[in-house]
Amino acid sequence: MSDRKKLKIAFVSNNAWSIYNFRIDIIKMLIADGHEILIITPNHAIVEKVLALGCSHIAIDFDNKVINPFTDLKFLMNLKRLYKKVNPDLIFHYVAKPNIYGTIAAHRNGIPSVAIITGLGFAFSRKNLLYFIIKQLYRFSLNGAKEVLFLNNEDALLFVRERIVPLHKINVLPGEGINTAYFHPPAVRKKNPTFQFLMSCRMLKSKGVEIFVEASRLLKLKEYVFESVVLGFFEENHPDSIAPSKVQQWQSQGLINFLGFKEDVRPFLANADVFVFPSYYNEGVPRSLLEAASMELPIITTNNTGCRDVVEDGVNGFLCHTQDPFDLAKKMEEMLLLKEQDLKQMGHKGREKVVSRFGMDKVIHEYRRIISLI
């Protein structure tokens, strides 16, 4: 790599955990290529692991969930000053506020930047005032980006149709990639004494947690014996957040086994029989689905943007209707009634799909392509 130009590259996001969890392989590749990597996020315990990779870190404070013109203007000015001071050669922005205000700050400092739209999220869930504000902010800011990357074609098409971003600036990544060597199926998958459905997500209503609970209730009324396990963490002050007391109530009723946040989900994926993700959130390509499929789990998910990119109905899992616990219960019942060999075959097909379409090497190729243009 000695003939390749060495750059100072910044990654800017709303939390260090997502940078470490989703982009660690990209960062390792860039460091191996000789680039200097700067992470700009709020402080988090996992920052120590980011630093151990050989990156540097600068802490910034902002709330990605609330739009306040005064705090947002302050965030923009802080980024503008910071970018001028550290003067990176290229900046990758993730999530809404860095994509909007970070792109403006980079453009005004003459620094090339790339906006990565990992999903349209809560703001695009309904056409209300928030939607129109965010759309106008994106339209104004993303004009200054070198490229705008999406994780699925549907989100990219929406931005083109709404004239938010010109087509020539857009490219679509194969999700955020998955390290299929790290998320590898166990050599021998132990057979559970009780059939286990597993869900892993942020504890938001639109991720379909309540739908999963109600579907489990419906199946238990039919006297099926199974366990519904949920992994996840709560997001304080998020308008779509589920109250911890509600989850405790479901737990006490025996509807789910809530295990909280787990830094390493692989042991739980290895122990489950089927992965369930009934999301009606505006997903990019859900990382949880890629992890589950890579570990050869059959999947039940919704016929929803991003989700249907990972699951082919009847091949590596089932697609169900959004916000429909009855249809989800039907698909869970079908999984319960499948022969063990059929479940294994679905799992094999899922891993084949992830390896061929969503492997990390394909995402790394796109990052290197962008860097080569600087």
Rank of each mutant, 00 (worst) to 15 (best):
P193V: 00
E154M: 10
I133W: 13
R126V: 09
V209H: 04
P166R: 14
N192C: 03
S200T: 03
A123K: 12
V165S: 01
H184T: 04
L130E: 11
L157Q: 15
A123S: 08
H168G: 03
Y182E: 02
N143I: 09
I134P: 10
R217I: 04
I134K: 15
T180M: 09
G208E: 02
F140T: 12
A215N: 00
L120K: 13
F122I: 11
K146S: 07
K127H: 12
M199V: 03
G175K: 03
P185T: 04
L130T: 11
S200D: 07
Y131G: 09
G144F: 09
I211G: 05
E214W: 11
A215F: 02
E214C: 14
P174A: 03
V148G: 00
F195Q: 06
L130Y: 01
N192Q: 06
F195G: 04
K135A: 08
I178A: 09
N153K: 13
A215M: 03
G144D: 00
A156M: 12
K191P: 13
I170F: 06
N153Q: 15
T118E: 03
K190C: 00
R126C: 04
L129F: 13
L198A: 03
L120R: 09
Y182T: 08
K135D: 01
P174C: 05
H168T: 05
G175E: 01
N153M: 07
N153G: 14
Y131L: 14
F159K: 14
A181I: 07
F124Q: 04
E147N: 13
I134R: 14
Y182N: 01
M199T: 02
K191M: 12
S216A: 01
L137E: 07
K146D: 01
N192T: 07
G121H: 00
G208K: 02
R126G: 11
M203N: 08
